[in-house]
Design a binder for these strands. Structure first.
Lengths: 346, 346
DNA sequence: TTGAAAGCGCTAACAA
DNA sequence: TTGTTAGCGCTTTCAA
């Protein structure tokens, strides 16, 4: 039973060779004879030898591992980004260690410690909502471990080895609202989340600027700030339908609120999109399952993960143009026009 | 800049103490004077000392890490299970290393190797669809690393240190179909995935047995085997509505197909649930966003993750009753009755 | 209460 | 082409 794992030393003893020869043979160095390599490989196979990465990493001073820290590993957005990260990291020969903060600063701090202790060669992080103090990132920065913030970035946190990748929420909203205007909507309501949150602030600004750019007035009565979910979306829609100035479209800053709004509109007998166009943001799975399907903005989650890793690679030791200031990347989201906003044939 | 990470040796030199004393002080051993501990801790803080887990793990022969291998880290199900795993593992003081196979045996094999090389103390795995050969798990078993299969298990793969946790799909389906019958449905169609896949086989059997138990005949014309998604659900529903024996309910083996079926029914002017009751399986997010909301079966994903870790712990060294045969756990799913099947007031 | 010394498994100079 | 030796950073006996 308890087959102790075979080590290089075991192989060396069995074959009457030194550990260095074994090590070199396994690494396929070219200063080992083919004959020896063959013997080593065969025995390794037979004993189902597994190299001990811990030892190798310790010796090399390189763990070959990247750390990822996200608020959640559930939901739609983060798993997809992490997927992108895992994909790109694996291409570059890195393993990935994934942690979640559960939107809790304490957890976040603990996880950063964990990642640092695990000697990761770089860290990709999307900060928790509740994070106000960023001291734990100082440790990362001061030890010169490359750090990439994605999606939820820490404004003003600069450093030699700090980059960021984010989404151009402003552009996404701008495009979306422009599309609604082109469809003939003139009284476009906006359901937004708390405006101190970046993504909502930016989407909101995109909304305002798109209206202005197309010569439409901004009607503050058509703007509603709330915690965005299905219930609040429904409630806000109901409220607006009682106003004197009823909207002919709703742009909700997330898809859940859009669904809620759509359901309320339909419940009042309005046709979507003819009487009321609806649009959301994020391209959640369910937006293509509702009736009608919901126009939204795709965030290219995977692309974000990929970009983040590439940014990180630029900062890693051994990169020739490492001197160059690490760049920040802003990704363009993609408008997805679906039934809920399409009044005119395309 | 490049603040080399402080090591115990550094602390020892700076304080004129031996590395062993430092190590003990940091570990809060009680054979170190409080005064010394204080000095050590303060300096450690000042130099923002981070213990090197690689070295500690190597020395101890314990990595304190569990490995998780899932087909995907996206979607609804697996992230939630992984969440449960992470939760419970963290409680027990374990870190978690997460890998995805992307439903590819090769990746799966590579990942198992990676986990073994990383000296994980146990592995939790849900096997890829395409896995036919299970040789890579032999390595795990023979090295006596505890192995827990969850959800997608390998039938007949037994071992001293192998357990499994799965869902009682049969029961879930049985309950669900019984519910439909209680609601007055008598011609219940079943949309199922390929029957060589376990979950579908079991759900299908639950369906059949529930009908029989309630004295209903099984009509093979009401059973449709397909790749389950929204499109195929729609198509199957349309087909059935043209049959002579039109169903009055549909139990789809996943939620996507249920949505598709519901949309087709509504498109034909049928009322859901009055004319056609609809039910799915898995409690995907969107099932509570459709109109009407969809009756489904919740799989208790998090619970599955938690159970898996507990099962693993039972097999770890140091467990007193480790001798006891590792158990397999079967979890009870939970019926969620929603609007799409509720004909009678509750 | 502290220190000396060994060694986890591996790699990489340097030597032969 | 192979071996010798040292050491990555840590923990842990054993001795003082």
């Amino acid at each position: 039973m308890a087959n102790r794992r075979a080590s290089i030393t075991d192989l060396a003893k069995a074959l009457n060779l030194s550990t260095s020869t074994i090590s070199r043979a396994l690494a396929d160095h070219n200063d080992v004879s083919e004959a020896t390599k063959k013997r080593v490989r065969e025995l390794a196979e037979e004993l189902s030898y597994q190299p001990n990465q811990l030892a190798a990493a310790l010796r090399r001073g390189r763990s070959n591992t990247l750390g990822v820290l996200v608020p959640h590993i559930t939901g739609n957005f983060f798993p997809q980004v992490v997927n992108g990260i895992a994909l790109e990291a694996s291409k570059a020969g890195f393993n990935v260690m994934i942690c979640q903060s559960n939107e809790d600063v304490k957890q976040e701090r603990k996880n950063i410690d964990l990642l640092m202790n695990s000697q990761v060669e770089g860290i990709l992080v999307s900060v928790s909502n509740t994070t106000q103090d960023f001291g734990h990132f100082d440790a990362v920065r001061s030890q010169d471990v490359p750090l990439v913030f994605f999606d939820r970035i820490v404004e003003g946190f600069r450093g030699n080895n700090v980059s960021a990748v984010m989404l151009d929420d402003y552009q996404g909203a701008y495009q979306l609202v422009s599309h609604l205007i082109e469809q003939g909507c003139t009284r476009i309501a906006h359901f937004t989340g708390p405006l101190h949150i970046n993504i909502h602030k930016n989407r909101h600004q995109g909304y305002r600027d798109a209206l202005t750019a197309h010569g439409l007035e901004i009607d503050e009565d058509l703007i509603s700030v709330m915690e965005l979910n299905q219930k609040t979306g429904t409630a806000a829609m109901k409220r607006m339908l009682k106003q004197s100035n009823v909207p002919d479209a709703v742009f909700a800053s997330n898809d859940l609120a859009a669904v809620g709004a759509m359901q309320a509109a339909k419940a009042q007998g309005l046709r979507v999109p003819q009487d009321m166009a609806i649009a959301g943001f994020s391209n959640e799975v369910f937006t293509s399952l509702t009736e009608p399907t919901i126009t939204t903005v795709d965030q290219g989650c995977e692309t974000m993960g990929i970009s983040a890793v590439r940014l990180l690679q630029k900062m890693l030791n051994g990169n020739p143009d490492r001197q160059a200031q690490p760049r920040n990347v802003v990704l363009r989201p993609k408008l997805l026009v679906r039934e809920s906003s399409l009044r005119k044939p395309e």
